[in-house]
Design a protein around this nucleic acid. Structure first.
Length: 565
RNA sequence: UGGGGCGUCGUCAAGCGGUUAAGACACAGGUUUUUGAUGCCUGCAUACGGAGGUUCGAAUCCUCCCGCCCCAGCCA
């Protein structure tokens, strides 16, 4: 259709259109207010990031506001630590909310009054049926339900009973408050849904003040209404709840926000369900919610992903109503694209192989100039020590190389990055036939600026001077699950069996440039030719440096080599 | 068999009765390169789940069919 401003990198989505239309028709006096309403029962993951970017992004885009509200109506699952982690993650992603943080629990008094209001309108009643009986009375999708025998209690009796529930006169589960709607509705949510339950659990904010708690359906819409939310954006599974959301708001006669549903994110090779992520943590399949293999915001942060790359990803995946699974490759692309522009290049040998340049003077040390980032001229250069004995990557040498192997092999030449062209003259093996050392010669004129510097050599290797190298631990991360769609396979029982046993490889004897000891935890680098890495936020110290691999570089050679096999 | 949704390239996803059916990722080829990285160039849906219909004209409207997802918590 009409080509929009070419400068606009964002593609249209249906929610943005709804918001635009609303503003164009002055529906909410031109103002937009969204909210991000997590339940504090776990850490945020990349799926939440999609929702965060949507809600905060829309508000920013249209000059509106976005609230942060903790949906804390079920004290049995919620904890303060989760509240803190969620706050940290949203901030880290780069968003800020309007005013104070909201809590649904702050509205408990108002919610109680509204429940009484429904009772007075004969639209709610106290039911003595227990959970099993209520389920039985509910019917099935194809069979309508039956009215509870307690459905026609008087207003006065209901008010008294509800007050008694609140006052702790009944045991947990003994009674509930239900909406009086329609037990024959095709929508199960409209068959007299439970509004309040009795629950004696310590609430992380209200303590033991309450022993009855509102259900999600009796709290969310009103909370939106109180906060004058214009667009209440949630995921598809709440579509069935919208008639109830609207029913409650309408019968209370209060401000009516618009609920809009979109498809939640699915990501290849991982799971995005708080329940299952909690299981991974509890069963020690990972080190915690912030394990770098976890699809959590905190895991990705620790892995070395940037907030910019996550926001970019969320913009690129779009927003729609079709269930879909986004390829991990897209997320990795976003990370690489961002880090390519920002990450300082350094040389680190992950799996060292000793290399001696036999014609290089013993004891001589050169400080070679290395660019910090070819993508960013302003990043400058640094000095890298070069000497007679070096380490190179084991995989950069082959005794019997295949065609098009542009690396080191007997008699072959290669360029050492920022340094000289060398030729492999001899290899030394131990008793078992393992290669332990390479003896090479170098071309003294081939250094940058030298007379033979322009010689075309196919391969360029990274290296570290042996006497200057420091030791580091590097953690190599791979997909947490073997299958691209782990959710496809059954339930909890197979959760652990679907785990990728090679999702973590720890390399203890990596050789790093000395300058890397000054790294700040969380700082990110490109280890030349190896990938993007991040100084671990928890475990990195100058005495025992630890780096995490965020993502590999694209590796055309690995593809070719794989095809040859 | 009830209610609510969804089906456009390998994966996401624009498209809103007239477009050569965007774009991105992935993939393939070429090129630059002291990172087999990056960059740059090229290719990649005669076709929109299927069948009918309306129309001068349909991915867009209508009908029927097929497939997939969600709902029977005193979870959110």
């Amino acid at each position: 259709m009409n080509k929009e401003n070419d400068a606009d990198p964002t593609t249209s989505n249906f929610i943005r259109e709804i918001v635009k239309d609303g503003i164009a028709t002055n529906k909410q006096e031109g103002h937009i207010c969204t909210r991000f309403p997590p339940e504090p029962n776990g850490f945020l993951h990349i799926g939440h990031a999609k929702s965060i970017c949507l809600n905060f992004g829309l508000a920013n885009e249209f000059g509106g506001t976005c609230n942060l509200r903790f949906d804390d109506t079920n004290p049995s699952k919620e904890e303060e630590v989760y509240v803190q982690s969620i706050i940290e993650d949203i901030k880290w992603l780069g968003f800020s909310w309007a005013g104070e943080i909201r809590y649904t629990s702050e509205y408990f008094d108002q919610l109680y009054d509204w429940a009484v209001c429904l009772i007075k309108k004969e639209l709610a009643y106290v039911d003595d049926l227990n959970a099993d009986e209520i389920r039985e009375h509910r019917g099935t999708p194809t069979q309508s339900g039956r009215n509870s025998p307690f459905r026609n209690r008087s207003v006065e009796e209901n008010i008294n009973l509800f007050a008694s529930m609140k006052n702790g006169e009944f045991s947990d589960g003994a009674k509930v408050l239900r909406a009086k709607i329609d037990m024959t509705s095709g929508n199960l949510n409209m068959r007299d849904p439970v509004l309040y339950r009795i629950l004696r659990a310590h609430h992380h904010r209200t303590g033991d003040q309450w022993c009855i708690y509102p259900m999600y359906d009796f709290a969310h819409g009103q909370s939106d209404s109180i906060e004058k939310i214009t667009h209440s954006i949630c995921t598809l599974e709440f579509e069935d709840h919208r008639p109830l959301y609207d029913w409650i708001i309408k019968n209370l006669g209060i401000y009516h926000p618009q609920q809009i549903e979109f498809a939640r994110l699915n990501l290849g090779y991982t799971l995005l369900s708080k329940r299952k992520l909690l299981q991974l943590v509890k069963e020690d399949h990972v080190s915690g919610w912030d394990d770098p293999r976890m699809p959590t915001i905190s895991g990705m942060r620790r892995r070395g992903y940037t907030p910019e790359s996550i926001r970019d990803f969320c913009e690129r995946i779009g927003v729609a109503k079709a269930n879909s699974t986004v390829e991990m490759a897209l997320l990795e692309h976003c990370v690489r694209e961002d880090l390519n522009k920002k990450a300082k290049r350094v040389m680190v040998v992950l799996r060292p192989l000793k290399l001696t340049i036999t014609n290089y003077p013993e004891g001589q040390i050169e400080e070679l100039t290395a660019e910090n980032n070819p993508e960013d001229p302003k990043s400058g250069t640094r000095k890298v020590p070069f000497s007679r004995e070096l380490y190179i990557e084991q995989e950069d040498f082959m005794e019997d190389p295949p065609k098009k192997f542009f690396r080191l092999a007997p008699g072959k030449e290669v360029r050492l990055k920022h340094a000289y062209i060398i030729k492999c003259e001899e290899m030394i093996k131990d008793r078992n036939g393992n290669i332990t050392e390479l003896k090479c010669t170098y071309d003294p004129d081939s250094k940058t600026g030298g007379s033979t510097a322009g010689r075309k050599i196919k391969g360029t290797l990274h290296w570290v001077s042996a006497q200057h190298a420091k030791k580091a631990e590097v953690r190599i991360y791979n997909h947490l699950f073997i299958n691209e769609n782990p959710a496809n396979g059954q339930g909890d029982l197979t959760l652990s069996s679907g785990l990728n046993k090679e999702s973590l490889e720890i390399l203890q004897d990596c050789k790093i440039e000395p300058s890397l000891l000054d790294s700040k935890p969380g700082s990110r680098f490109q280890f030349l030719r190896m990938g993007y890495f991040c100084a671990d936020l928890k475990d990195f110290t100058p005495d025992s440096p630890v780096f995490n691999r965020a993502v590999t570089l694209r590796d055309t050679w690995a593809k070719i080599a794989k095809q040859k096999k």
